[in-house]
Protein backbone atom coordinates (compact mmCIF):
# COMPACT_ATOMS: atom_id res chain seq x y z
CA UNK A 1 0.00 0.00 0.00
CA UNK A 2 2.98 2.33 0.38
CA UNK A 3 2.43 5.73 1.92
CA UNK A 4 0.06 6.59 4.69
CA UNK A 5 -2.80 9.05 4.44
CA UNK A 6 -3.26 11.20 7.53
CA UNK A 7 -6.26 13.51 7.64
CA UNK A 8 -6.29 16.54 9.92
CA UNK A 9 -9.81 17.49 10.88
CA UNK A 10 -11.84 19.27 13.55
CA UNK A 11 -15.46 20.03 14.19
CA UNK A 12 -15.16 23.74 14.68
CA UNK A 13 -13.31 26.02 12.29
CA UNK A 14 -10.34 28.14 13.25
CA UNK A 15 -8.89 25.72 15.79
CA UNK A 16 -5.61 25.21 13.92
CA UNK A 17 -6.02 22.47 11.31
CA UNK A 18 -4.20 24.33 8.59
CA UNK A 19 -1.48 25.41 11.00
CA UNK A 20 -1.09 21.80 12.14
CA UNK A 21 -1.04 20.40 8.60
CA UNK A 22 1.62 22.84 7.44
CA UNK A 23 3.81 22.22 10.45
CA UNK A 24 3.45 18.46 10.37
CA UNK A 25 4.32 18.52 6.68
CA UNK A 26 7.48 20.50 7.35
CA UNK A 27 8.45 18.38 10.34
CA UNK A 28 7.91 15.09 8.56
CA UNK A 29 9.97 16.37 5.64
CA UNK A 30 12.72 17.46 7.97
CA UNK A 31 12.67 13.95 9.42
CA UNK A 32 13.53 12.73 5.95
CA UNK A 33 10.07 11.61 4.87
CA UNK A 34 8.60 12.15 1.42
CA UNK A 35 5.46 14.20 2.01
CA UNK A 36 2.52 15.66 0.11
CA UNK A 37 0.09 18.01 1.83
CA UNK A 38 -3.32 18.44 0.23
CA UNK A 39 -5.58 21.41 0.88
CA UNK A 40 -9.06 19.91 0.76
CA UNK A 41 -10.78 23.13 1.78
CA UNK A 42 -12.14 23.96 -1.63
CA UNK A 43 -13.28 27.57 -1.93
CA UNK A 44 -11.25 28.60 1.13
CA UNK A 45 -7.70 27.96 0.01
CA UNK A 46 -5.28 28.58 2.88
CA UNK A 47 -2.55 26.01 3.21
CA UNK A 48 -0.59 27.64 0.36
CA UNK A 49 -0.18 30.94 2.21
CA UNK A 50 0.64 29.30 5.52
CA UNK A 51 3.41 27.40 3.73
CA UNK A 52 4.56 30.43 1.76
CA UNK A 53 3.82 28.86 -1.63
CA UNK A 54 0.93 31.01 -2.82
CA UNK A 55 2.81 32.61 -5.69
CA UNK A 56 3.73 29.32 -7.32
CA UNK A 57 0.29 27.91 -7.94
CA UNK A 58 -0.60 27.03 -11.51
CA UNK A 59 -3.06 24.17 -11.12
CA UNK A 60 -5.15 23.00 -8.22
CA UNK A 61 -6.96 19.96 -6.84
CA UNK A 62 -10.01 20.42 -9.03
CA UNK A 63 -7.80 20.73 -12.13
CA UNK A 64 -6.32 17.32 -11.30
CA UNK A 65 -9.69 15.72 -10.62
CA UNK A 66 -11.19 17.12 -13.81
CA UNK A 67 -8.20 16.11 -15.91
CA UNK A 68 -6.90 19.56 -16.85
CA UNK A 69 -3.62 18.88 -15.12
CA UNK A 70 -1.43 15.88 -14.53
CA UNK A 71 -0.94 15.09 -10.87
CA UNK A 72 2.74 16.00 -10.93
CA UNK A 73 2.09 19.28 -12.73
CA UNK A 74 -0.16 20.52 -9.96
CA UNK A 75 2.18 19.58 -7.14
CA UNK A 76 4.16 22.53 -5.82
CA UNK A 77 7.56 21.78 -4.43
CA UNK A 78 8.52 23.42 -1.15
CA UNK A 79 11.36 25.96 -1.27
CA UNK A 80 13.35 24.28 1.46
CA UNK A 81 12.51 20.59 1.23
CA UNK A 82 12.92 18.72 -2.01
CA UNK A 83 10.57 15.97 -0.86
CA UNK A 84 7.72 18.15 0.33
CA UNK A 85 4.87 19.05 -2.02
CA UNK A 86 1.60 20.93 -1.81
CA UNK A 87 -1.56 20.29 -3.78
CA UNK A 88 -3.55 23.49 -3.39
CA UNK A 89 -7.32 23.78 -3.14
CA UNK A 90 -9.29 25.49 -5.87
CA UNK A 91 -10.25 28.93 -4.73
CA UNK A 92 -13.13 29.56 -7.09
CA UNK A 93 -14.96 26.25 -7.14
CA UNK A 94 -17.34 24.64 -4.70
CA UNK A 95 -16.82 21.50 -2.68
CA UNK A 96 -19.01 19.40 -4.94
CA UNK A 97 -16.37 19.54 -7.65
CA UNK A 98 -14.50 16.78 -5.82
CA UNK A 99 -15.93 13.50 -4.56
CA UNK A 100 -14.66 11.12 -1.89
CA UNK A 101 -13.88 8.60 -4.64
CA UNK A 102 -11.76 11.21 -6.44
CA UNK A 103 -9.75 11.62 -3.27
CA UNK A 104 -9.22 7.90 -2.89
CA UNK A 105 -8.02 7.64 -6.47
CA UNK A 106 -5.69 10.60 -6.09
CA UNK A 107 -4.16 9.45 -2.83
CA UNK A 108 -3.74 5.87 -4.07
CA UNK A 109 -1.55 7.28 -6.80
CA UNK A 110 0.42 9.38 -4.31
CA UNK A 111 0.93 6.49 -1.91
CA UNK A 112 3.25 4.87 -4.40
CA UNK A 113 5.81 7.67 -4.28
CA UNK A 114 5.34 9.24 -0.87
CA UNK A 115 5.57 8.21 2.77
CA UNK A 116 2.92 10.57 4.08
CA UNK A 117 -0.02 12.27 2.47
CA UNK A 118 -1.52 14.86 4.81
CA UNK A 119 -4.98 16.17 4.11
CA UNK A 120 -6.10 19.49 5.57
CA UNK A 121 -9.83 19.03 6.05
CA UNK A 122 -12.32 21.88 5.96
CA UNK A 123 -14.37 22.56 9.09
CA UNK A 124 -17.83 21.10 9.37
CA UNK A 125 -19.36 17.78 8.49
CA UNK A 126 -20.23 18.36 4.85
CA UNK A 127 -18.82 17.13 1.58
CA UNK A 128 -15.37 18.59 2.13
CA UNK A 129 -15.02 16.64 5.37
CA UNK A 130 -16.18 13.46 3.62
CA UNK A 131 -13.61 14.05 0.91
CA UNK A 132 -10.85 14.35 3.47
CA UNK A 133 -12.05 11.39 5.53
CA UNK A 134 -12.61 8.79 2.84
CA UNK A 135 -8.96 8.06 1.96
CA UNK A 136 -7.65 8.39 5.54
CA UNK A 137 -5.62 5.69 7.26
CA UNK A 138 -5.39 7.83 10.34
CA UNK A 139 -7.30 10.89 11.51
CA UNK A 140 -5.92 13.59 13.74
CA UNK A 141 -8.55 15.75 15.36
CA UNK A 142 -7.51 19.26 16.31
CA UNK A 143 -9.35 21.00 19.09
CA UNK A 144 -8.88 23.91 21.46
CA UNK A 145 -9.47 23.56 25.19
CA UNK A 146 -12.81 25.34 24.95
CA UNK A 147 -16.38 24.17 25.39
CA UNK A 148 -17.56 24.78 21.83
CA UNK A 149 -14.45 23.35 20.16
CA UNK A 150 -14.52 20.19 22.28
CA UNK A 151 -18.21 19.75 21.70
CA UNK A 152 -17.77 19.97 17.94
CA UNK A 153 -14.77 17.65 18.14
CA UNK A 154 -16.96 15.07 19.85
CA UNK A 155 -19.42 15.27 17.00
CA UNK A 156 -16.73 14.72 14.40
CA UNK A 157 -15.22 11.86 16.41
CA UNK A 158 -18.59 10.14 16.32
CA UNK A 159 -18.76 10.53 12.54
CA UNK A 160 -15.19 9.28 12.13
CA UNK A 161 -16.00 6.19 14.16
CA UNK A 162 -19.23 5.65 12.26
CA UNK A 163 -17.21 5.70 9.03
CA UNK A 164 -14.88 3.05 10.47
CA UNK A 165 -11.97 5.48 10.44
CA UNK A 166 -11.57 5.67 14.18
CA UNK A 167 -10.31 5.96 16.72
CA UNK A 168 -8.64 9.19 15.80
CA UNK A 169 -5.98 10.93 17.83
CA UNK A 170 -6.22 14.32 19.41
CA UNK A 171 -4.16 17.44 18.99
CA UNK A 172 -4.99 19.95 21.68
CA UNK A 173 -3.97 23.31 20.31
CA UNK A 174 -3.63 26.74 21.91
CA UNK A 175 -3.33 25.51 25.45
CA UNK A 176 -2.60 28.35 27.84
CA UNK A 177 -0.62 26.82 30.66
CA UNK A 178 -0.96 29.80 32.97
CA UNK A 179 -4.75 29.70 32.67
CA UNK A 180 -4.86 25.95 33.23
CA UNK A 181 -2.84 26.41 36.38
CA UNK A 182 -5.32 28.97 37.65
CA UNK A 183 -8.15 26.58 36.88
CA UNK A 184 -9.45 28.96 34.25
CA UNK A 185 -9.02 26.69 31.25
CA UNK A 186 -9.76 23.05 30.48
CA UNK A 187 -6.56 21.06 30.89
CA UNK A 188 -5.41 18.41 28.44
CA UNK A 189 -6.47 15.81 31.04
CA UNK A 190 -9.96 17.31 31.12
CA UNK A 191 -10.22 17.10 27.35
CA UNK A 192 -8.99 13.54 27.45
CA UNK A 193 -11.52 12.62 30.16
CA UNK A 194 -14.31 13.97 28.05
CA UNK A 195 -13.36 12.79 24.57
CA UNK A 196 -11.53 9.61 25.54
CA UNK A 197 -9.12 9.68 22.61
CA UNK A 198 -5.37 9.28 22.71
CA UNK A 199 -3.60 12.62 22.70
CA UNK A 200 -0.90 12.84 20.08
CA UNK A 201 -0.06 16.49 20.63
CA UNK A 202 -0.41 19.34 23.06
CA UNK A 203 0.46 22.65 21.43
CA UNK A 204 0.79 25.76 23.55
CA UNK A 205 -0.58 29.13 22.58
CA UNK A 206 2.33 30.90 20.95
CA UNK A 207 2.52 34.35 19.40
CA UNK A 208 5.17 33.08 17.04
CA UNK A 209 2.42 31.17 15.18
CA UNK A 210 1.08 34.50 14.00
CA UNK A 211 4.46 35.79 12.87
CA UNK A 212 4.97 32.49 11.10
CA UNK A 213 1.74 32.85 9.20
CA UNK A 214 2.63 36.46 8.39
CA UNK A 215 5.89 35.40 6.84
CA UNK A 216 4.77 32.10 5.34
CA UNK A 217 7.39 30.16 7.24
CA UNK A 218 5.71 27.58 9.50
CA UNK A 219 6.57 27.92 13.15
CA UNK A 220 8.22 24.53 13.42
CA UNK A 221 11.15 26.03 11.48
CA UNK A 222 11.59 28.54 14.29
CA UNK A 223 13.68 26.87 16.96
CA UNK A 224 12.62 29.49 19.51
CA UNK A 225 9.02 28.44 19.30
CA UNK A 226 7.45 26.09 21.84
CA UNK A 227 4.52 25.51 19.52
CA UNK A 228 7.01 24.65 16.80
CA UNK A 229 8.72 22.14 19.04
CA UNK A 230 5.40 20.65 20.04
CA UNK A 231 4.40 20.22 16.38
CA UNK A 232 7.72 18.58 15.71
CA UNK A 233 7.00 16.12 18.52
CA UNK A 234 3.65 15.32 16.93
CA UNK A 235 5.41 14.48 13.67
CA UNK A 236 7.77 12.15 15.49
CA UNK A 237 4.85 10.43 17.17
CA UNK A 238 3.15 10.09 13.77
CA UNK A 239 6.14 8.13 12.49
CA UNK A 240 5.99 5.93 15.53
CA UNK A 241 8.56 7.40 17.88
CA UNK A 242 7.81 7.43 21.56
CA UNK A 243 8.27 11.08 22.47
CA UNK A 244 7.48 12.33 25.98
CA UNK A 245 5.24 15.36 26.24
CA UNK A 246 7.25 18.50 26.81
CA UNK A 247 6.93 20.60 29.87
CA UNK A 248 4.89 23.62 28.87
CA UNK A 249 5.29 25.33 32.19
CA UNK A 250 6.55 28.80 31.30
CA UNK A 251 7.60 30.07 34.67
CA UNK A 252 8.40 27.29 37.01
CA UNK A 253 8.88 29.63 39.92
CA UNK A 254 9.83 28.76 43.43
CA UNK A 255 6.20 28.36 44.47
CA UNK A 256 5.39 25.82 41.78
CA UNK A 257 8.50 23.88 42.60
CA UNK A 258 7.54 23.79 46.24
CA UNK A 259 4.03 22.59 45.44
CA UNK A 260 5.38 19.94 43.12
CA UNK A 261 7.88 18.78 45.68
CA UNK A 262 5.20 18.42 48.33
CA UNK A 263 2.91 16.80 45.83
CA UNK A 264 5.54 14.31 44.80
CA UNK A 265 5.31 15.42 41.21
Amino acid sequence: MGGKVVTISSGKGGVGKTTATANLGISLASLGKRVVVIDADIGLRNLDVIMGLENRIVYDLVDIVEGRSKLRQAMIKHKKFADLFLIPAAQTRDKMAVSPEDMVKLTDELRQDFDYILIDSPAGIERGFRNALEPADEVLIVTNPEVSAVRDADRIIGLIEAADKGPGKLIINRLKTNLVKKGEMLSSEDVFDILGLTIIGIIPEDELVLSASNSGIPVTLNLQSKAGMAFNNVARRVIGEDVPFMNLDENRGIFQRLVRLLDGR
Binding site: R151, V180, K182, G183, M185, L186, I194
Partner: peptide
Protein backbone atom coordinates in the same frame (compact mmCIF):
# COMPACT_ATOMS: atom_id res chain seq x y z
CA UNK B 1 -12.36 27.94 38.41
CA UNK B 2 -14.21 28.35 35.15
CA UNK B 3 -12.25 25.41 33.76
CA UNK B 4 -14.15 23.04 36.03
CA UNK B 5 -17.41 24.69 35.05
CA UNK B 6 -16.48 24.20 31.41
CA UNK B 7 -15.93 20.51 32.04
CA UNK B 8 -19.29 20.07 33.75
CA UNK B 9 -21.11 21.93 31.02
CA UNK B 10 -19.39 19.89 28.35
CA UNK B 11 -20.38 16.66 30.07
CA UNK B 12 -23.97 17.82 30.06
CA UNK B 13 -24.20 18.88 26.42
CA UNK B 14 -22.29 15.85 25.17
CA UNK B 15 -24.53 13.48 27.04
CA UNK B 16 -27.43 14.78 25.00
CA UNK B 17 -25.51 15.28 21.76
Amino acid sequence: GSGATAKDRLRFVLQHD
